[in-house]
Amino acid sequence: MINFLIGAGILACAILAVRENRLLVSALWLALTSALVSFLMYRVGAAEVAVVELSVGAGLVTVLFVFAINIIGNESVASQAPLPRPLAWVAIVLGGLLLAWMILPSMQLERFTAVLEQQGELAGLFRSVLWTDRSVDSLLQVVLIFSGVLAVLGLIGGEEGLESKEEKQG
């Protein structure tokens, strides 16, 4: 039952985040979605990553959003959609239904319920999986962060650099 409530809560928050016209509030709904997702993850058995999601997804990302919105100004946006809403609806619902129809039959397999019975005695392995088995992924995260930081520096910092240069020249 609690699982159901979490699921419903996640979707409700997500919908509210999308429907909200004030940017800041929308970002906060996103944070709440993220927090609930992290809770769901915990329920599924992924305790470690749930913490990360809570801190990064709900925390850091929200901070970034708030930061960006502060620079931009918390404008409230026109709710009129740039393309016909029914079209978006039909495309999304059709895609979702198709995917569900293709995926769900394979979800009812016996082995999954059996798997769910055994609770997480596997805890503690996460570290070794992350740092040993999938070390390439982890190393690549560094590359990702590096490229991302360079991109942000280039995009945000460049402006100031130019201004300061102009100031120097002026």
Partner: peptide
């Protein structure tokens, strides 16, 4: 090179991220 499906995605994403600034190079 990679023979791991998820690792493939990570390389792919890293490729994408490293190209964003290059596309937006003239960001003025």
């Amino acid at each position: 090179c990679t023979r791991d499906l998820f690792n493939l995605w990570v390389w792919f994403e890293a490729m994408a991220v490293s190209s964003y600034l290059l596309v937006a190079f003239y960001h003025h």
